[in-house]
Design a protein around this nucleic acid. Structure first.
Lengths: 230, 230
DNA sequence: TGTACATCAGTGAACGCGCGTTCACTGATGTAC
DNA sequence: TGTACATCAGTGAACGCGCGTTCACTGATGTAC
């Protein structure tokens, strides 16, 4: 019954991977807006119409690349998390992994966190992969909250309902003050990374690694994490 | 001597403005990657080659739009600044103006702060316009520093040289701790705005106005600003 | 083990599209005397 | 005020390009009996 191990099935997996690899290469070189099915096919020595056996349209190829990018970023972040001990240190490690990954994969980063690709809207299937880094930050903060050291700032009254809804959705065992700070810190992290990546720090910040680490530490403090506690 | 008031000169100014307006309209509708000289000309009832009397190439038109966008954002921010009193309140007002402008001009915002347009690199002429909002934040913080209320966090030793260089470049009369915090806050502000604008807050933050205001207040505190002091 | 049929990866030509840019030109507006 | 010439905005045709997608096809791989 299982054709899943036939030569045809194996070939299909390999060619699909080759298409994505070449597409990723072009993405890295030119950006998502310039990614072209015809160019991918040309580079693989195929005829452009052959790609339609693997991806029903250019948008589907883009979607596959987006999911892969989120997963690649998620894996980097998770590996950094596992290599660190203590909530504060884990937080910093994940922030640095995100920055590192972004600098190593600028166009893939732009694809998932930059301005939307014109004419393309990401389908629902991308959501789980997109959530990985966020879930990691939540897990780290939750672990810290079980120990000592969380000193959340207070919430204004008009933010409380939304904060409580977010808390119920994301991390019911954390205080709403912390969840709010967490979401803000998450967005702010991407501001820091994006500014560096897209050139806004040119002529302003030079020692970017050190600057980033300092800023990431401030973000950690913002969600109540302090160095050294385990 | 002065042909600057002839009918021809006046017409030139008007047509140049009309081209930019139409280009801005297409930018708003489709994004920078889809902006096309031919479509602009078509919409204006001109032949595409006629645009070359006004802009030597598509890139020059893009550059003009970028400068206009920075100036438009800068004006909004400056107007908000002037309408507020006290450093903390001015800070919040400027942050909110930036967010408001971004939500009102999403594609122009993406053009100046989103992922770079493929094949285009912004020339030097854009720098002064790009600096306006940053200068505003520096001015606000400087004013606060002349009064009471600045309580800067400390700097790690390895960041100090870069922090002192930045301080000399940007605001020699401010302490390096504050300048560093300022640059970070500036990047973080754009993280908050970008996340909302590019859809990362979908299904996460609902009351975005309130959330943003709270986050902006935290940023203000990060550079040592506190409410109520004048 | 061998044969008949079904599946499906890849081909090659074509459709219809839009793009940026160049170039020789026409004709109206502006300038010098 | 009138004439001769220079400037320059806008035209229309063309160049050369690349794109996504469709379609009828060939031929190799896989399946059922």
């Amino acid at each position: 019954m299982s054709t899943a191990h036939g030569a045809r099935a194996r070939a299909r997996i390999e060619v699909t991977a080759a298409i994505k690899d070449e597409a990723r290469r072009q993405l890295a070189a030119e950006g998502a807006a310039r990614l072209s099915l015809r160019a991918v096919a040309r580079e693989l020595g195929m005829v452009s119409s052959a790609l339609y056996r693997y991806f029903p349209s250019r948008d589907d190829l883009l979607t596959a690349l987006i999911i892969d990018a989120y997963d690649s970023l998620g894996e980097s972040a998770e590996a950094a998390d596992e290599a660190a001990a203590g909530p504060f240190e884990r937080w910093i490690a994940v922030c640095r992994a995100v920055r590192r990954w972004a600098l190593d994969h600028p166009h893939e980063y732009a694809l998932i966190y930059g301005s939307p690709v014109p004419g393309y809207t990401a389908p629902e299937v991308t959501v789980p992969a997109a959530a990985r880094v966020g879930l990691l930050f939540i897990a780290i903060t939750r672990d810290a909250h079980h120990g000592p050291g969380l000193a959340p700032t207070s919430l204004p009254a008009d933010l409380r309902p939304d904060a409580e809804r977010m808390t119920a959705d994301l991390a019911p065992d954390l205080p709403p003050e912390v969840v709010t700070a967490l979401v803000a810190a998450w967005a702010q992290l991407y501001g820091l990374v994006g500014f560096e990546l897209f050139g806004q720090f040119n002529r302003v910040v030079e020692n970017r690694e050190t600057f980033f680490r300092h800023a990431a530490e401030q973000l950690a403090r913002g969600v109540g994490l302090v160095p050294g506690s385990v």
